[in-house]
Design a protein around this nucleic acid. Sequence first.
DNA 1: CTCCTGTATCGATGACTGTCAACATAGACG
DNA 2: CGTCTATGTTGACAGTCATCGATACAGGAG
Lengths: 136, 136
Amino acid sequence: MSKKELPVLQPAQSAPGLPGVLCCTPLAREPLGEADATDLAKVFKALADPVRLRLFSLIASFEGGQACVCDLTGEFDVSQPTISHHLKVLRDAGLVGSERRGTWVYYWVLPEMLGRLSGLLAPVEVGAEARAGALA
Amino acid sequence: MSKKELPVLQPAQSAPGLPGVLCCTPLAREPLGEADATDLAKVFKALADPVRLRLFSLIASFEGGQACVCDLTGEFDVSQPTISHHLKVLRDAGLVGSERRGTWVYYWVLPEMLGRLSGLLAPVEVGAEARAGALA
DNA sequence: CTCCTGTATCGATGACTGTCAACATAGACG
DNA sequence: CGTCTATGTTGACAGTCATCGATACAGGAG
């Protein structure tokens, strides 16, 4: 079941509330509102760090689609508290989910947000018309 | 600088250094390398600001696909130098191109980068393939 | 219970970033 | 030439961020 309009982002968990923009509005289709831009910027900011990008990619491409923190810390040159901090940023942005399972804590990517971002960045048909229709 | 020294970035050429990652590698497909993550982070960082997001969206959705700075400054509460700064960030990230045309300077979105980002964020089939075929 | 390991939080710090005012530059026009 | 308008650049400041060490919390083992 795929719901497109619902901002389902486990509001009870950690997602600070990502409104409708992140649903399906193409960035290049119509001007972004202030509030929407602020929310979107938070998500991009979460991805705007090399360590977080690698963390995110590592989790996403892990066997089973999830990884425990112990699998991640060894891959980076930063300290464990830093890794934990970055994971929290990703979680707060609604990009990953997490769950404690016994001793270890597992993280997985939330594909919804990924798909929304992908759709947001999808370029609209800007063929020859755009270039040709120059004004004065 | 009458005709500019080629501000319009060409993929992996005059750009700040956008290698192959930005071409078509899905983020959730395989772990991102350090260098690739650093480059990608720069692009996301350029989008990680509400003003820049609105600027970008505004330019992209403008009539003719391009807008002069004079069309943009009025839409924001920040000063003109700040707008100019943000436009430079977007240009350096390879997200927009610019050209002086007489008195005014016009900006337009580079759809290539947009498409690359969109492809990068495209979620892989987590439901079936990733879950099953990952463990080799 | 106590110890040990895995993970999160806290406080501090150096680096970066968004913003502005002031100034510089480029082109149009008289 | 000089002047006006449109943009870009510079320098400075405040706020944010990435990172660390120390520490706290959670759960399993003894």
